[in-house]
Structure formats: C-alpha cells, structure tokens
C-alpha cells in the first residue's frame, strides 16, 4: 500500500465517522419522526459511502474491494426503499409532521 492510499483511507474513514456521528445525533435530538427520518438518511448515504470507500483504499485491488462495492450498491438500493416504507406506513396510520399548519396538508387530511 502506498502512502497516498493510506492517507486517503484515513481521511475518508474520519469524515465518514463524523457523518455517522452527526446522523446519530440528529436521530437522537430532532423533535419529530419525519425530521429524524431526514437525519437517518445522512448515516445511510454519506457516512456509509465514505467509510466504505476508505476501506476500499485499505483493501487495494483485491476481492475485498469487490465485496465492499457490493455492500455499497446493496445499501444504496435498499436504504431509500426501507425509508420510504417507514414514512409511508407512518403517514398512512395518521402521524403528521410536527409544526405544519393544517392548511398546508393535503385537502382530505384537514
């Protein structure tokens, strides 16, 4: 492993860990289910992508990188699907966004 790959791996891992921490902190502190949905998205996209790219720099051109690419593609496909399913279920049951006035909701929901 060259020095440049090690430096890039460290930078990507650190930035990814910071984004994962930001997402978790938002999941803890935000006031409403829909805003927490927004915070959880940071973890699934930026945090996970950056950390996996950092591990790809650690792994080099081997089978390890192929597996990491598979994990990245799989989670980039399934995470928005799961998030949409959770949001759709919550809205169907009757959970409404916090702080939105009733005239801004759809017509049949008033």
């Amino acid at each position: 492993m060259t020095v440049l790959a090690a430096i890039l791996a460290g930078v990507f891992l650190a930035v990814g860990a910071i984004f994962v921490l930001i997402g978790s902190f938002g999941l803890w502190r935000l006031p409403d289910f829909y805003t927490r949905l927004h915070a959880a998205g940071i973890t699934d996209t930026l945090g996970l992508s950056l950390m996996l790219v950092g591990m790809m720099f650690l792994g080099g051109w081997t089978l390890v990188t192929v597996k990491l690419v598979f994990i990245l593609l799989l989670i980039l496909l399934t995470s928005p699907t799961a998030t949409h399913a959770v949001a759709n279920a919550a809205y169907t049951v009757g959970l409404r966004p916090f702080g939105v006035p009733p005239e801004d909701l759809p017509e049949k929901e008033r």
Partner: peptide
C-alpha cells in the same frame, strides 16, 4: 499504521453512534 489508527478511531465513533441510536 496511520490508516489502521484512523480505522480504530472510526470504529470508536461507530460505537458511540450505536449507543445514541
């Protein structure tokens, strides 16, 4: 060694994030 140290630091951050979640 530098990259593995950063990996250990990122793992510690992940553990804190898991606790908050």
């Amino acid at each position: 060694d530098y990259a593995l140290m950063m990996l250990a630091a990122a793992t510690a951050g992940l553990l804190v994030a898991l606790l908050i979640t």
